[in-house]
Design a protein around this nucleic acid. Structure first.
Length: 262
DNA sequence: AAACAATCCAACCGCGATCCA
DNA sequence: CTGGATCGCGGTTGGATTGTT
């Protein structure tokens, strides 16, 4: 059997996803689910192959995705699981809620591999091990040196443990992942934030995201959804990199609410 | 300030597994 | 049972960003 390569058909787009495409995909899956990835792009009106849509959803747009740096605990878990399972990223990801196999794979290759090699506890393991090997490697990992300093936070990434920014200012690490500290004139980030502020016109969308913005520091991974709220149809996604854009957006969102006394 | 190197990570590719007619 | 269609996984790539000289 000869398989036709993915996206072989002419006219299918490749490369980075635009905000509009993200929005189309999110809205389609919200309404119809994703029973058939192959058919999804055609039905949703996306010029992408199903594989690309699936990857984008799984690795980036899913509402339960946890963005930001990996905690020390998560990194240790990855090191231990990799010791036991080898490069079975999906199996490792299954033990880390909100993390994707792709993300774990990336963090392994960029940070943890070096750490493991430095500690001499994580030889490259391919495929399954025997039960006894699993026991042995687990014991080995449990006794490994975990006293290494936490690596510095990359300025490219947003994180739940970055130092706070000036009140009212917005720290944007990239267009899809921003973090801010609340100012006094900003709506409170509680479970109603998504439905009352960002999705006032479409409360059904808010439900899946209601748990995201409940911390004093808001983590905001879904810029396309904000775009929907603003009904902005930009052709240049670079505009979302603008600090001014986000500040104005949130200021306006706050003004639209009857805010409780803070 | 410019050039170059290093790093990061989203997205792609190919293949094996699984489903199903 | 067979084989086409689809899914899911792991490896890899390449553009963007950051750091260094």
């Amino acid at each position: 059997m000869v398989r036709a390569p993915c996206c072989e058909k002419m006219g299918l787009k490749k490369g980075p996803w635009t905000a509009e495409e993200d929005l189309i995909l999110i809205n389609y899956i919200k309404l119809h689910g994703h029973g058939n990835w192959r058919a999804l792009p055609k039905q949703a009106g996306l010029l992408r192959c199903g594989k690309s849509c699936r990857l984008r959803w799984i690795n980036y747009l899913r509402p339960d995705i946890k963005r930001g740096n990996f905690s020390r605990e998560e990194e240790d878990t990855i090191l231990k699981l990799h010791e036991m399972l080898g490069n079975r990223w999906s199996a490792i990801a299954a033990e880390l809620p909100g993390r994707t196999d792709n993300e774990i794979k990336n963090v392994w290759h960029t940070h943890l591999k070096k750490r493991a090699e430095k500690n001499h506890v994580t030889p490259e393991i391919k495929g399954l091990k025997t039960d006894q090997e699993l026991v042995d490697s687990s014991n080995l990992a449990a006794g490994s040196d975990q006293a290494e300093e936490r690596r510095p936070i990359s300025p490219q990434q947003c994180s739940s443990d970055t130092s706070s920014v000036t009140t009212g200012d917005i720290d944007i690490s990239n267009s899809m992942c921003m973090k801010m500290e609340l100012s006094d004139d900003f709506p409170e980030m509680d479970e109603n934030f998504w439905s009352e502020v960002l999705f006032a016109d479409n409360p059904s969308i808010a439900g899946d995201y209601s748990g995201i913005a409940t911390e004093p520091q808001l983590q905001f991974p879904f810029s396309p959804l904000v775009i929907e709220v603003e009904q902005v149809h930009a052709t240049n996604s670079n505009m979302y990199d603008s600090t001014e854009y986000w500040h104005n957006l949130f200021t306006r969102a706050g003004e639209s609410l009857e805010l409780p006394e803070i």
